[in-house]
């Protein structure tokens, strides 16, 4: 099953490779990974999309916790969350396809960032299904280049005060 894991880690030399190396060294799967500094510049936030059965996910969580540069690990997908991904799609357009390309972009509330006589560069943001869908629709026109950010996710706050919140795993080595 797919899981989205959110990591807080030290923003320093080599921390990314410690996490990436853990996944490759232990044969865990990474579907996407994105990382950037947080409000505190000494800390980065990383979102990893991975998959595996419960035992594998438990090991991934524990192993991530064991990495000394990792400060906190949360399996965001364990409770309610919102996720987004941005894709930049450079689509090839013959003259008869240009209107169709714009229509598709419009349906998905995507932006056209760049236009040339034979192409549009379209920016789309949404959950993974939305991004997949526009890619499928644009594919028949001819996609020249596709760049995706990887998914980022954040837990939803409770709508009622009593509702359980996703809790970070106690940090323990």
């Amino acid at each position: 099953m797919e899981h989205i894991i959110s990591l807080t880690l030290e923003n320093k030399f080599g921390s990314l490779s410690r996490v990436a190396g853990l996944f490759s060294g232990r044969g865990f799967n990474i579907e996407s990974l994105s990382v950037a500094p947080t409000l505190d510049p000494s800390v980065s936030m990383m979102t990893i999309v991975t998959s595996g059965d419960d035992r594998i996910i438990e090991q991934i969580m524990k192993q991530l916790n064991k990495v000394i540069d990792v400060i906190k690990v949360v399996d965001v997908s364990e409770s309610e969350f919102v996720e987004r991904e941005t894709a930049l799609i450079k689509v090839h357009t013959r003259p008869e396809d240009r209107a169709e390309a714009l229509r598709i972009a419009d349906i998905f509330r995507a932006n056209v960032l760049d236009s040339s006589p034979t192409s549009y560069t379209i920016e789309v943001t949404g959950d993974v299904r939305k991004v997949q869908a526009i890619i499928h629709l644009l594919q028949p026109l001819g996609i020249k280049e596709l760049v995706r950010t990887g998914r980022i996710a954040i837990g939803r706050d409770p709508t009622r005060p009593t509702q359980a919140q996703p809790r970070p795993l106690a940090k323990a080595n």
């Binding site: 880690l9 106690a170 940090k171």
Partner: peptide, 8 residues
């Protein structure tokens, strides 16, 4: 003290 390293 290392914030990411607190063994139980």
């Amino acid at each position: 003290s290392i914030r990411g390293f607190n063994p139980t």
